[in-house]
């Protein structure tokens, strides 16, 4: 079995998806099911005071008994805020310690602040968290985060929610070649071919939210992404043919042509 192993645990699916931006919880549920994802990201937010007790909750639509929750620190701009958020998440999820760390640096681009990210990663790893870390596609920072003890390195393909696709496959390739922990492209995937390209490069997985939730038909896109990740993975394992610049090679026999 070709499985994704994160912090010693195996996952059959290499597609990780976010649970934000869906029309309603039913759409979230159907998209998650269709994607085949086993790991889903969730955000930690202040509860509404005065909320009805019987109001539907994400936990009913996407039960943590069935999926591995990956609480994130989306919206955090400092190591301190990210650490506080994840400590609350661990308490909320009964000691669950697999988390997604992201520390942002700029509200317009949501580009990661790698200095604060490294600071937070050091503290969280020491505190026993299994940290999957969102970062830029800087190979040196990616390596440092691995050395700190992060269980997966998750470079951006392009800006969060931009759908711009894989903008720098060369940097991703360096990160993949140097890494001893799973490399998961997180952010920037826009459509199925982007996910396939990431997997063909040798990424261990792809994490996305808006590419599915922001599609015209999110449930159908979830299905497309599942197939794209599988296809890209198989193509990577199969090993693509070498590119031959300026020299074609016929697929059909060159002898036995009629009239010769």
């Amino acid at each position: 079995m070709d499985e994704l192993i994160i912090a010693g645990k195996s996952y059959a699916s290499r597609l990780l998806i976010g649970t934000g931006k869906y029309k309603d919880f039913d759409e979230t549920r159907r998209a998650v099911e269709e994607s085949g994802a086993q790991i889903v990201t969730v955000a930690i937010r202040r509860t509404n005071i005065g909320q009805n007790a019987g109001e539907p909750s994400l936990l009913d639509a996407v039960p943590p008994s069935k999926y591995t929750y990956l609480p994130n620190t989306a919206g955090c701009y400092s190591a301190d805020d990210a650490i506080r958020t994840l400590r609350l998440a661990r308490e909320l999820l009964d000691g669950h310690d697999l988390v997604k760390l992201e520390v942002l640096g700029d509200p317009k681009t949501l580009y990661p602040n790698v200095v604060e990210t490294i600071k937070a990663a050091e503290i969280l790893v020491k505190d026993g968290f299994k940290v999957m870390v969102y970062t830029s596609d800087d190979p040196i920072i990616a390596k440092q985060l691995e050395e700190i003890g992060c269980v997966a390195v998750m470079p951006l393909a392009s800006l969060i929610g931009s759908g711009m696709g894989i903008l720098n496959p060369w940097n991703l390739q360096i990160i993949i070649d140097n890494a001893k922990v799973p490399v998961i492209v997180d952010a920037g995937v826009g459509t199925a071919s982007d996910a396939a390209i990431a997997m063909e490069l040798g990424c261990d997985g792809v994490l996305m939210n808006t590419a599915i939730a922001g599609a015209g038909n999110p449930v159908l896109m979830a299905s497309a992404m599942k197939k794209a990740v599988q296809a890209g993975r198989e193509a990577f394992l199969a090993g693509r043919m070498p590119k031959k610049l300026y020299s074609a090679s016929p697929s059909s026999p060159t002898s036995g042509l009629i009239g010769k």
């Binding site: 937010r45 609350l88 909320l92 999820l93």
Partner: peptide, 10 residues
């Protein structure tokens, strides 16, 4: 006091 829950997010 901060009281938090899990919500949809990416």
């Amino acid at each position: 006091l901060e009281i938090v829950v899990a919500v949809g997010g990416g």
